[in-house]
Structure formats: structure tokens, C-alpha cells
Amino acid sequence: MTEHTLKMRKRPKHLNLFQIRLPFPALVSILHRASGAILFLLLGLLLWLLQGTLSSGARFDAVRSALSNPALKLVLFGLLWAYLHHLLAGVRHLAMDLHYGTELEMSRASSKLVFFGALALTLIAGVALW
């Protein structure tokens, strides 16, 4: 047992998720995963909506009036946020794959752009389509 491994063992772990402060790039990263999971879970809803709106004029209108329900609207805007966040974070990923914006300063700035950009676009769509 060397001194090194002893030190490793005593190294403090701080994995309380409610106390860890996430820097913006980390926040965007975990939200990329969370929004992806939400999108997967709601894929069936989207297909169902596509089927409904394409099948007949009556069903189209029925879906439309069902979506005037505020609770359903909130679900759809949540879905829209997930889509936008996932899309913007994905574009950021692709840019970084091409070695754009990989420096710390730029990556912090772009993570804020993704986070607030997705929220802002969702808000704009929400106001426009409510």
C-alpha cells in the first residue's frame, strides 16, 4: 500500500446532486440528455398527433381544439423547449466536433447562448401560438 493509494482513498467525494453547482456547459450537457429522453418518451404522442391531423378534416379540427386545453398546451411547449434545447445543444456539439469554440471562454459563452436561446425561442413561440 503506497502513500499515493492511501491518499486516493481519502480523497473527499462530493456527489450530492442538490449541492453541486453546475457551470453552464455542464447544465447544457445534462439538459441535452434530459431533453433527449423527454423527446424519446413523447415520440408516440407526436406520431399520434401526425396521424390525427392527417387523417381527416374532422380529426384535424378535433386535435386543434384538444390542443386549446391549457394543460396540453403546456405539455406541447415543454416538448418544444426540449426540441429546441436538444437542437441548439446539438449544433454546439457539431461545431465543437469541427474544433470551433472549444476554448473555455467560447464554450462558456456558447453554452449560455444555447440555454437562454432555447428558453427565449420557446417563450416567443409560446406568446405567438398561445
Binding site: 440528455r33 433527449g36 429522453a37 423527446l39 424519446f40 415520440l43
Partner: peptide, 13 residues
């Protein structure tokens, strides 16, 4: 594309 993308993503999760 959605289904392939979802597979890789959900599998990673």
C-alpha cells in the same frame, strides 16, 4: 434518422 438517433441516445442513457 429520429429512430436511429433515439436508439444511440437512449442506449447510452
Amino acid at each position: 434518422s429520429v429512430l436511429l438517433h433515439a436508439w444511440v441516445g437512449v442506449r447510452n442513457i
